[in-house]
Design a protein around this nucleic acid. Structure first.
Lengths: 147, 147
DNA sequence: ATAAGGCTTCCATCTACTGGAAGGTCAAGA
DNA sequence: TCTTGACCTTCCAGTAGATGGAAGCCTTAT
């Protein structure tokens, strides 16, 4: 199979497949004309990569997972460790995004969004807190930056 | 104020402040020795930037927000539009991460994580679905890749 | 013969910084 | 006065994970 067929079958762009070869994730053979020739095993690795990437694993995680995938002597604990690390990163990201979302949604809901210049969103970004806008108690705590 | 002071006060690394100047977000003056000299207005812009970035606004969003910030004739609708666009992106990202998290957490919970090679995580990544592992009904739908 | 489409490599670009090298500046101390 | 150390400067490279495009070869059909 040539790269175009593999791209169609795997759903990965040809560019990406070449990139994966460049960084050593796959090693297809070459025909005499220089074209890459993909065997079933290459397709399997690419499918594996596509799936792992769609779950958000980093390229380096993928490299490790592929190695374990091809190792009959592997311990599932090693796989699980990679997956758990990734899960932890996802949870961090989720917490960060959720906090952002909350603040942002509040600001958006406070903004009239008309032709007048008054804007609580800009006020907040500029560090002005023009008297609690609806909710009582804690007077606008400002979340800190997260990595 | 020199860049070091501004960095301490704003919480932004000096490198980042130089970068923001390079891409035209701020334009501090220069002393005769070539050192950047920051006025209060520069500090305000940097604080604004730090806050906007911590809410996840892109640099280009920040550029637009800063422009509106400095425009007395602005319409709050323009600010709100940027914020809403950003909110929508956050929601997309949240949905994507939540889906990943769910699949991943399930796989992790299925994996023994011991010294044996059998691993449902690898099986899934490889496209093998070894008989529904606990839940009935829909026999493992595989989520597609999201941008 | 030539045109279309597929393939190749190489280089640049994207986001938002970050790290480091080489070197100028300034204030304090011996 | 010299030196030391903390600042500051610019410039270049690198990060993750591709993606876009140019220039050019290969193959097949017309």
């Amino acid at each position: 199979m040539n790269i175009g067929d593999v791209a169609r079958l795997s759903g990965l762009p040809a560019k990406t497949i070449r990139y994966y070869e460049e960084i050593g994730l796959i090693s297809p053979m070459r025909d005499q004309n220089g074209y890459r020739r993909f065997r079933d095993s290459d397709m399997h690795r690419l499918a594996f990569l596509g799936r792992a990437r769609s779950l958000g694993f980093s390229i380096e995680d993928c490299r490790g997972l592929l190695e374990l995938y091809g190792d009959r002597q592997r311990a599932s604990a090693d796989v699980k460790q990679i997956a758990r690390g990734h899960l932890a990163r996802i949870d961090e990201k989720l917490a960060e995004l959720t906090a952002m979302r909350q603040t942002l949604a509040h600001l958006v809901s406070c903004c009239a969004g008309d032709s007048r210049p008054d804007c609580p969103i800009l006020d907040d970004l500029a560090g002005n807190f023009p008297a609690g806008s609806g909710d009582d108690s804690t007077e606008n705590e400002r979340p800190g930056t997260v990595s």
